[in-house]
């Protein structure tokens, strides 16, 4: 008989002593570990490959072993080649990605927190109907509205204007729902009522009572808003036309289709954009979101869905 003690993870549940029985349980345990580890390795392999890829020349990338390392200097070469594309348009793309994403995160989180609070703690007419519309909007994938949004945006003359991407992406029903649940369950409603009895108006109550208590909520809202906005592809693809307005994700797609890197029949044969350059541009897109994911992994553990709807 084997006895193993499982230590409590900092964020996990308190576990006692788990008794496993004999040989069968040990093999069961081993299988679990193998499955978990293999899945982990499969998840990480492409990222390792992607990090190594720009260290090699196009020739090394095709000829050398997949996980070989070229040289650090090659990252610089690849970067200079990227810069040479249309007078450094990649810098525009990166700048645009930062500006669009930051604007979207700020606008979407602020409107969502305000709306969630209004739904949870104020006397709002048609509250149930508004809530249901928000839930429907939250389940519909944003992609479904792309063509309708294009029709609308071109009608009001905002086509190829970055404002169109920022505003349409700032519509954040999932955030409203999370904020609504947060304000109606995590903070006792007596608190708002007490403030109102003391003569505080809706806005005073919100800014003095609700907002200071919602830092965790902001973290979660910003996380989801960021992860959607940073990789946003289809919507800007349809709403923007000029290369200098692209975000990085769109720019990367453009490099794909316009350079001979992946298909020799595409684009100019003399292009400096080869596979290492594309891999480097992909890294610029992937690394920020990876950092945000890792930094906020603790937020996610609390149970996004469970924490949100458990009442």
């Amino acid at each position: 008989m084997t006895t193993e003690t499982i230590t409590t993870a900092s964020s996990g549940r308190a576990h006692g002593v788990v008794r496993t029985r004999g040989f069968g349980a040990i093999t069961g345990r081993t299988v679990v570990w193998i499955v978990l580890a293999v899945f982990g390795i499969l998840s990480v392999v492409p990222m390792i490959w992607l990090i190594l890829a720009p260290s090699k020349t196009a020739k090394q990338l095709n000829g050398d072993a997949p996980f070989s390392f070229g040289s650090f200097a090659q990252y610089g070469v690849a970067w200079n080649n990227l810069l040479s594309q249309n007078n450094g348009v990649i810098l525009n793309w990166m700048g645009n990605s930062v500006v669009y994403t930051a604007s979207i995160v700020v606008i979407s989180c602020l409107t969502a927190v305000l709306a969630g609070y209004a739904l949870a703690a104020t006397a709002l007419p048609f509250k149930r109907a508004l809530l249901i519309i928000t839930l429907v909007a939250m389940i519909i994938p944003p992609v479904a509205l792309v063509v309708p949004l294009f029709v609308e945006i071109s009608a009001i003359g905002l086509y190829d204007n970055p404002i169109s991407v920022i505003l349409t992406s700032s519509f954040y029903p999932f955030g409203v729902f999370l904020a609504y649940i947060y304000f109606s369950t995590s903070i006792p409603t007596e608190l708002y009522e007490a403030a109102k009895v003391d003569g505080a108006g809706e806005f005073t109550t919100f800014f003095r009572i609700a907002l200071p208590l919602s830092r965790g909520l902001f973290g979660m809202l910003a996380f989801f808003s960021f992860s959607a906005a940073w990789v946003n592809y289809f919507l800007p693809y349809v709403l923007l036309q000029s290369q200098e307005n692209f975000n990085l994700s769109l720019g990367l797609g453009f490099l794909f289709t316009s350079s001979p890197a992946l298909n020799p029949q595409n684009g100019a044969q003399q292009s400096l954009i080869g596979r290492p350059e594309i891999a480097l541009a992909s890294l610029f897109l992937a690394i920020p979101i990876l950092i945000v994911f890792i930094a906020s992994s603790r937020l996610l553990v609390r149970g996004v869905l469970a924490g949100a709807v458990k009442s």
């Binding site: 499982i6 230590t7 409590t8 993870a9 996990g12 549940r13 576990h15 679990v32 570990w33 978990l36 580890a37 899945f39 982990g40 390795i41 998840s43 990480v44 492409p46 990222m47 490959w49 992607l50 890829a53 997949p66 992860s227 990789v231 592809y233 994700s249 990367l252 797609g253 490099l255 794909f256 992946l262 594309i278 891999a279 992909s282 897109l285 992937a286 690394i287 979101i289 990876l290 994911f293 890792i294 992994s297 553990v301």
Partner: peptide, 30 residues
């Protein structure tokens, strides 16, 4: 598995989510 490997495993699992759109196409091509 609530031990010390829980967090690294979770982190490993969310790595691919950072490789969407054009990046995913590049990865899968290779």
């Amino acid at each position: 598995v609530q031990g010390r490997w829980n967090l690294p495993l979770r982190l490993a699992y969310i790595v691919p989510a950072s490789m969407t759109g054009a990046t995913a196409v590049l990865i899968w091509y290779f």
